[in-house]
Design a binder for these strands. Structure first.
Lengths: 209, 209
DNA sequence: GGGAAAACATAGCATTGCTATGTATTATTG
DNA sequence: CAATAATACATAGCAATGCTATGTTTTCCC
């Protein structure tokens, strides 16, 4: 009787537990299926429906979890006196996160985006936008640069590399192409070539790839 | 008796038929399942196993088909007197192909690459490498530029844009970011900024996006 | 023609996501 | 505090999935 009362006490954290378990199963490359997900948790298959409304809801929650973790990683990158260096560190952190959780990264982009997904991704993009604005304020970029546009272009570079490496066509060391790519982009935005190169190489080393 | 003989005559093109049908089902966003694929073709479910060895083999064949079609589209881009303009036209054709068959494009990159997939993708990449070599020969890029590296960097840009647009986070008009991105990349490779910009804008217009 | 090999159809299996139904637990009243 | 409404949960079962086993037909090769 007693232990039943304990076990059966409503536990809203079971939602987070299932998400974590799914993320871990993705990391260990085990197929995430309805029954295999709830097996071992004590919960029944219905838990997925009460908490997520079905498997599709679970994937959506997993996508948001992926963006949340990504945003947390990006938030760890400190703002130094060199905003271009910080932008490179942000990009490196983006790639590092994708390399640490390649399957979760794939899930984040495999289904067509919905409103909720876009909101989760917005925080990631906004992080880059703020970095570009800081670089503008520091006089590294031209005044006519649109921070959002430059951030999107940087995102395209980062996602292109991350996607091509995690899916296999490019080897992991191809991530190093990020340095010349970002340098080219930021120089085109007005930064001094030599100074830009040094900043980016410094920022790149901030993150273990 | 007679019509049976006609119908049952071994037809090796049934393999291509199934691939085409699967590609069309992807385009019309109908779920490609074993039974729905063979329904209407007169073939039974076993055809998928005799020709592809299972559904996974079908997906692999579809990936190769996707790269083959992509290579055919890229081959249509003519080589003019302006190799930088041709490189932009190649990139635009790459994006155009992805926009025309977004689901096929996603299938091409959703599973981890195997040897056969890499061989199919090689032709695509080699197309860009040749373009870079022509630009070097024309004196547009510096002598120390590695054609393969620059081609890979261009591929990362193209795939990043194509992937972010087909999966939803970026709207279709974001493809226009390809112009400044390629300009930045090729200027960093040594091309004259003004001339590069003009070449790329011209090449970009060669393809309907 | 006749035998070997490949292609094919049928039927059935285990597993998938999901729903219907009934039961237990929680919360919300009077 | 008890009675009722609402929610969470377990069980069982359904249609559909990919796949395999088995037997039959067709094609190839001598």
């Amino acid at each position: 009787m007693y232990y039943w009362a304990v076990v059966r006490t409503k536990d809203p954290s079971i939602r987070a537990l299932l998400i974590d378990r799914a993320a871990q199963m993705l990391r260990t490359r085990r197929p995430v299926t309805l029954r295999s997900l709830v097996a071992g948790t004590g919960a029944s298959t219905m838990a997925v429906y009460t908490y997520f409304g079905g498997m599709e809801g679970l994937w959506k929650a997993l996508r948001q979890e992926g963006f949340t973790r990504l945003a947390a990683e990006l938030a760890k990158v400190p703002a130094t006196a060199d905003p271009v260096r910080d932008l490179a560190a942000l990009s490196a952190a983006y790639l590092s996160n994708a390399m640490d959780n390649p399957d979760l990264y794939r899930v984040m982009f495999d289904a067509t985006f919905e409103l909720e997904d876009s909101k989760a991704a917005d925080e990631t993009l906004h992080c880059l936008v703020r970095g570009v604005e800081r670089a503008k304020s520091a006089g590294r970029f031209r005044d006519d640069i649109d921070p959002l546009e430059l951030a999107v272009q940087g995102w395209a570079i980062g996602h292109g590399l991350a996607s091509l490496v995690t899916t296999g066509p490019l080897p992991r060391q191809a991530l190093a192409h990020g340095v010349p790519l970002l340098t080219a982009l930021f120089v085109s935005a007005g930064d001094d070539p030599g100074r830009c190169r040094r900043s980016i190489e410094q920022g790149w080393e901030q993150v273990r790839l």
